[in-house]
Nucleic acid binder design. Structure first.
Lengths: 208, 208
DNA sequence: GTGGATGGATTGTGGAACAATTCTCGGATC
DNA sequence: GATCCGAGAATTGTTCCACAATCCATCCAC
């Protein structure tokens, strides 16, 4: 029951939600005074929340000019994809090394969850969530907290792209494709992930 | 000439310096009121600077308990090393791919600078600086801004370890070792970096 | 000793104000 | 008409002060 959360955390969470669900489109200016009065908070609190949001890559702050919801371009998407490749490939490599060339049960479970979400087909959000969870489970299985943390920090940005682009995914294909991905990882090693992530980045870039 | 910088930036910079040169040893509590009066600033300003420092990994903030200079343990060092490997290996891979299997002139120049700094032997700082610059030049040559940015964000933390450990490096060896590293990269590909970084991490860990 | 009360220190937040900077827009100039 | 310019508005950066919430150390009762 305890509202075990600070005011700036609460505001950060709400703003993050609104950015990610598209209520606040990219480029929208986030004025301190306006947000403060709207939420019944002090400007300092709003400021802190805005900086936190910027640290997640969901907003950009220009000194003396305010902060606005982060916009996205093809270059940003590609750069983000390259960073994801770096983290996921090395994460997968460590995960495989730690578990004798196999992937741990948590990863396979995440793949099953994704398949289930694809079949259920009740909305887009559960699928992207399960997809994100699978990729993160893979990285988390590396046992490397910093790689996992860096990867988790990218989740928001990635979702920002997804909510903007609403890609036309074939859900059936998405499920089987990831099942095959896990098999290929255990058979051929971590590098097969490179093509997988690069391909999904390419698909998104095509929508820009 | 313009002091084209905000107060919080200035304080962040000063605190960063003091943390990195060892004036503020790990574990030192950074009290808001104390820093505010000492520097003639408002507590809010100090708070912002402390959050910025924490975002760089140089301080840790515990809610309602304040922030203190980041301490380091073996686990932290190893986790940092794994993240560096992820970024540097993929960065090097992209750099080689972009330049037809070679490394661009900027990287070779950085290696020469390192060799020069090692021979000059006037202090430790120039060597670690040149060493950092070489590794970053390698990653920057990837042309991937996000990978480069993530790598740059690790520089502070890495230096925090170095200033604490003062490893006994054979400077002659350091220079030749990195010259050989570049040759090996161009000959055998990016993966040779893994052993290089892992080895240097191991050396540091041995001092803990 | 163990298990609280209690008070001091520190962080979290609010409110108002002012300086510094950027933005806006109506004129003056060409 | 287009461009430059300056005054005022809007917004951010910062200070000061206050108070609630939380944590911490110490002392007391048992």
């Amino acid at each position: 029951m305890s509202a075990r959360t600070t005011a700036v955390d609460a505001l950060t969470r709400e703003l993050r939600e609104r950015v990610l669900d598209g209520t606040l489109p990219p480029g929208t200016p986030l004025r301190e005074q306006r947000l403060a009065t709207e939420h019944g908070l002090a400007r300092h609190t709003v400021r802190a929340a805005l900086r936190a949001l910027a640290a997640e890559g969901l907003a950009r702050v220009e000194p003396h000019r305010g902060v606005r919801v982060a916009g996205l371009g093809r270059a940003d998407l590609e750069a983000l994809g390259e960073l994801r490749v770096a983290l996921e490939v090395e994460g997968a490599r460590l995960a495989l090394a730690r578990h004798g060339g196999r992937l741990p049960a948590a990863v396979h479970a995440a793949a099953r969850d994704l398949a289930r979400a694809c079949r259920a087909a009740d909305g887009f959000a559960p699928v992207t969530e399960a997809h994100e969870a699978l990729h993160h489970a893979l990285v988390a299985a590396s046992g490397s907290p910093r790689i996992a943390a860096a990867h988790a920090g990218l989740a928001g940005e990635l979702r920002l792209f997804l909510t903007q682009l609403r890609p036309a995914y074939d859900l059936e294909e998405l499920a089987t494709q990831h099942g095959e991905l896990l098999r290929a990882l255990e058979r051929d090693g971590a590098d097969v992930l490179r093509a997988h992530v690069a391909d999904s980045t390419r698909r998104l870039a095509a929508l820009l």
